[in-house]
Amino acid sequence: MWLRPVDLAREHGLSTQAVRNYEEAGILPPAGRSPHGYRRYSPRHAAALRAFLALVPAHGHPTAAAVMRAVNGGAVDEALRLIDESHVRLAGDRNTLQDVEDALRGLAPQRAPEAEPGVTFIGPLAHRLGLRPATLRTWERAGLVVPRRDARTGYRVYGSADVRDALLAHQLRRGGHGLDRIARVLAEVRTAGGPEPLQAALEEWRGRLRARGLAMLTAAAALDAYLCPAADAVATPAG
């Protein structure tokens, strides 16, 4: 049974040029040709296209394309390695999310940054926290608190957001968290605009990770359906 480019394209709402581009990129195996030179695809090409389009939301376009090129080139082990790496990245993202949630769960309420003085310097801030200025400098090198420098004196100037970050870092350190972990938490706090907005961002983040995990299951099934005929051919001796 031969299929035209438009037959593959129509199933997924693609253009025929997109199908040809996927073939040229090695995402689809090479097509046969009719006596007049027209491309002729088979159900196996259709399965390859389904597998690729399922892999994209699960692993991203570059990895999905690399997996399909590896499979079509007979390098199944390389394809599996790429998928394994993608799963490791997802697991790492889940661990980071858990770190942030665990850290925020142990935070005590703080006054809003607007209630803090507009700016302060390293000595007064260190005194307020009961720390040595050297500790704040260490936190700065680790990316926990990043004050600006006064253009005239070169002194560190801590704004309200910097004070907030220092307060959060101090609480997290007292809770036993390491500098790397605190840096990840504070990076998320800064992106969200504070601990409170971060809660909504964490819910959205969790939803994205869940969607990726489910997409990986769908992609695995589609890739398995594409690989099965090849696996059967290898397993069944020629008669």
Rank of each mutant, 00 (worst) to 15 (best):
W2H: 15
L3N: 03
L3P: 04
A9M: 03
A9Y: 02
R10G: 06
E11M: 09
G13W: 04
L14N: 02
T16I: 11
R20L: 07
E23A: 00
E23I: 08
A25V: 11
L28F: 01
P30F: 10
P30G: 04
R39H: 02
R39S: 00
R40K: 11
R40T: 08
S42C: 06
R44K: 11
H45E: 04
A46M: 12
R50H: 10
F52C: 00
V56N: 02
P57F: 06
H61M: 11
P62V: 04
A64L: 05
V71P: 00
G73N: 03
A75E: 13
D77N: 10
R81E: 13
I83A: 03
I83W: 04
E85G: 10
S86C: 07
V88A: 13
V88M: 12
L90V: 06
G92C: 02
N95S: 15
T96I: 11
L97V: 08
Q98T: 15
V100P: 01
E101K: 12
E101Q: 14
L104I: 12
R105H: 14
A108P: 04
P113T: 10
A115P: 00
E116S: 10
E116P: 00
P117F: 12
G118S: 14
V119Y: 15
V119K: 14
T120I: 13
G123M: 08
P124W: 11
A126M: 02
L129F: 07
G130V: 05
G130C: 05
P133H: 05
T135P: 11
T135K: 13
T135E: 14
L136Y: 06
R137L: 07
T138W: 15
A142N: 05
V145G: 00
R148F: 12
R149L: 10
D150R: 06
D150N: 12
A151S: 13
Y155M: 02
V157F: 06
A161T: 14
D162G: 01
D162H: 12
V163D: 00
A166Y: 11
L168T: 10
Q171K: 02
L172Q: 06
R173V: 09
R173G: 08
G175E: 08
D180N: 09
R181A: 14
R181F: 05
I182N: 02
I182Q: 02
R184T: 14
V185W: 06
L186K: 01
E188T: 10
E188R: 13
R190Y: 09
R190I: 07
G193V: 03
G194C: 02
P195W: 08
E196S: 06
P197I: 05
A200M: 07
A201P: 07
W205N: 15
R206I: 04
G207C: 02
L209N: 05
R210G: 01
R210S: 07
R212A: 06
G213K: 08
L214Y: 09
M216F: 03
T218W: 10
A221N: 13
A222L: 02
D224H: 15
D224S: 14
A225C: 00
Y226E: 01
A230N: 09
D232T: 15
A233D: 08
A238W: 08
G239D: 14
